[in-house]
Design a protein around this nucleic acid. Structure first.
Lengths: 229, 229
DNA sequence: TGACATAGTGTGTATTGGACACTATTGTGT
DNA sequence: ACACAATAGTGTCCAATACACACTATGTCA
């Protein structure tokens, strides 16, 4: 069995489901396709994997090229390999998902590409290829992951209020949480550091701001620790 | 951006971590490589993906060809794509894991290939390529998955005793469980059907045998149900 | 019939999860 | 200055779950 070219090579792509959180909504970054197939349709950012880069590298490169994003939380999701998912030829896609702090940039500036846009997940249009399946898988993964790992903080700015955090969890988990129980639980882990600052937004009581204690979390993680919500 | 052959194609393989449970131990199926690279080394069963088959199809075909296994529980695990994981050229591998009822076949007959062998996970030799990483990932996945989904039953024969079930969970989770609490919990789901038969093995009290109620489980699963252990 | 080996069984306690409603603090408008 | 609007912040009780824990039962075999 010779080991080269016995089997036709597959074109290998990475696609990224990029989640952001803004205005109390979970959003996803989509790109309008400039080329056939699916020209003019919305799609997930992604592209071909080069021979000299890992899958993770490819995903990060595409995020930077297509959306101007770097240093984001990125994880492999699932590999989509049905035979006809690309009408051109056999293309296998290693899907990833990323979490970005959308409020840091503003919604417009988060990407400088004119053909990129943040969509609330409830208003995502029909997508090219099987990207709707990929998005669904990413949402399911996010939802299950957020329950036992503090990845929600990747979606918030470095300083945030407990209300923001709760709204984020509510958006991701798609159900409402009790304020008192929520605060009790997240504070009990001791991973939120209260800051001197408060958030003053309009005519109501200002909210205490917190930051997430990444260092402490890394230590706890090594000893097998679960951040459940 | 032309969409063909701008980027070199990668060779695409599937590799399978096949778990079995026998003699109170969790085991994994390994194949002795007949060809270079890593000739004579042990490796996970797997091979190249054909252009006209899905990833899942490819994994099942390899399981049948290399180990004579069919109709097993099979799930995609993770895709390994570091640049130099194969010394020949760029090869990306979509890893899967499978659970088989090892006791149904016996350890020898479970595969007719002379170059295949079941290894207890504690005694796995050095593996070819990055297969040690793949195995580690599969073990981690099995361990977390078994906690909230009743996949353990895939590893047992259709009829089993509660002790067998408990030993399986202990092997997978790598810790001991209290017999009374374990029985209380698994029976509370009402998914184990007691059979008329008992298991008579040697000089001690015979054990009640059960089967797993797949139909009832499928119904419960649709309503969002968790089988926690 | 006694020794051996594994099967099988219940209770009490500590912890956690979840329901639940009011007070506090700021800005604004009159 | 006072009322109002809007969000922040706080504690208790009850139910369910998790966990620790030890003895009896039933078969085989010598």
């Amino acid at each position: 069995m010779p080991h080269t070219y016995q089997y036709p090579r597959a074109a290998l792509t990475v696609d990224c489901v990029v989640f952001g959180f803004d205005e109390g909504e979970l959003k996803v970054l989509l790109i309008e396709r400039a080329l056939e197939p699916f020209k003019g349709k919305w799609a997930l950012p992604g592209g071909f994997v080069r021979v000299d880069e890992t899958l993770d590298d490819a995903a990060r490169r595409e995020l930077k090229e297509e959306a101007g994003l770097k240093d984001v939380f990125l994880e492999q999701l699932y590999t989509f390999g049905t035979v006809a998912r690309d009408p051109r030829e056999r293309v296998v896609s290693v899907a990833h998902y990323a979490l970005v702090q959308l409020a840091a940039h503003d919604t417009k500036a988060a990407t400088d590409a004119a053909d990129a846009r943040w969509y609330p997940i409830s208003k995502v249009p029909k997508l090219a290829f099987d990207h709707a399946d990929i998005l669904a898988a990413a949402l399911a993964r996010l939802k299950s992951k957020v329950r036992y790992q503090p990845i929600g903080f990747e979606l918030l700015p470095p300083k945030f209020t407990l209300s923001q955090l709760q709204h984020l969890y509510e958006a991701v988990l798609e159900n409402e949480l009790d304020k008192r129980n929520f605060r009790k639980k997240v504070l009990s882990y001791g991973l939120l550091v209260p800051l001197k600052e408060t958030q003053m937004t309009g005519r109501h009581r200002p909210a205490q701001m917190f930051r997430f204690d990444t260092i402490k979390y890394e230590k706890l993680k090594k000893r097998g620790f679960n951040f459940e919500v």
